[in-house]
Design a protein around this nucleic acid. Structure first.
Length: 214
DNA sequence: AAAATAACCAACCGCCGACAC
DNA sequence: CGTGTCGGCGGTTGGTTATTT
């Protein structure tokens, strides 16, 4: 058991960075809890790992996000929701922390998205009244309650299979109407209003499958 | 110039799943 | 099967910097 007080917290110094980089040069990545033991660095394994991944790794791109990166992140977030590691995996040189911070401080404001709207509720079979209203506005020409898609239930929830045991019915907040996914399977009707965003489709399909639609 | 407020972002926290024993 | 360790994730905090009053 690690005594929390034995480890230093807060911002990393240049000296600490150097120690960590030296360790990784010799021992490679991983086994983060050994760093403190082998180097005397007073940082816990988690802190070391995070420092490497988010800052020290040569693959990390520093500096401002470009318009292209912004656009990519926006599209990916529409597709994946708050799955920052998945999004970051598609934005070369950016970490999940960078993407998350950039979204929360810049892009969500730019798009006028509140935190509440970013979240979705799992296992709730009901649609919030506000969302229902918005859904109706955006989809007056169809009665979506009668539409059933593979993986969806008739209440507008999506049945998310984890391929092992249970299924859960997930409920989603609205997504913006302009669907950027090419496949007709993901037409606007299914993306707006009470219908789930594409977020949990990643639980049903490989990311590569969804990625082709971007 | 100083205080108050907002914005930014690095780092921490709690939780979870995989794995070894 | 239970337990401990490790790595990974998303949400949140808090320190620093920039801007406003």
């Amino acid at each position: 058991m690690e005594a929390r007080s034995q480890y230093k917290r807060g911002l990393w110094t240049v000296e600490e960075d150097q120690i960590l980089m030296d360790y990784i040069r010799v021992h490679g990545k991983g086994r983060w809890n050994r760093v403190a033991k082998l180097t005397g660095l007073k940082r816990c394994g988690k802190s070391c790992r995070l420092r490497w991944i988010n800052y020290l790794s040569p693959s990390v791109k520093k500096g401002d996000f470009t318009e292209e990166e912004d656009d990519l992140i926006i599209r990916l977030h529409k597709l994946l929701g708050n799955r920052w590691s998945l999004i970051a995996g598609r934005v070369p040189g950016r970490t999940d922390n960078q993407v998350k911070n950039h979204w929360n401080t810049h892009l969500s404001k730019k798009l006028g998205i509140t935190k509440r709207q970013q979240k979705f509720v799992v296992s709730s079979p009901t649609v919030p009244e506000n969302d229902k209203e918005e859904a109706d506005e955006t989809n007056t020409h169809s009665n979506n309650a009668n539409i059933e898609l593979p993986g969806y239930d008739s209440n507008g929830g999506v049945i998310v299979n984890d391929y092992s045991s249970q299924s859960v019915v997930a409920e989603f907040s609205n997504t913006p109407n302009d669907c950027l996914v090419g496949s007709s399977w993901f037409s606007n009707d299914y993306l707006s209003l009470g219908y789930p965003s594409l977020m949990d489709l990643t639980d049903m399909f490989p990311i590569e499958f969804l990625w082709d639609g971007l």
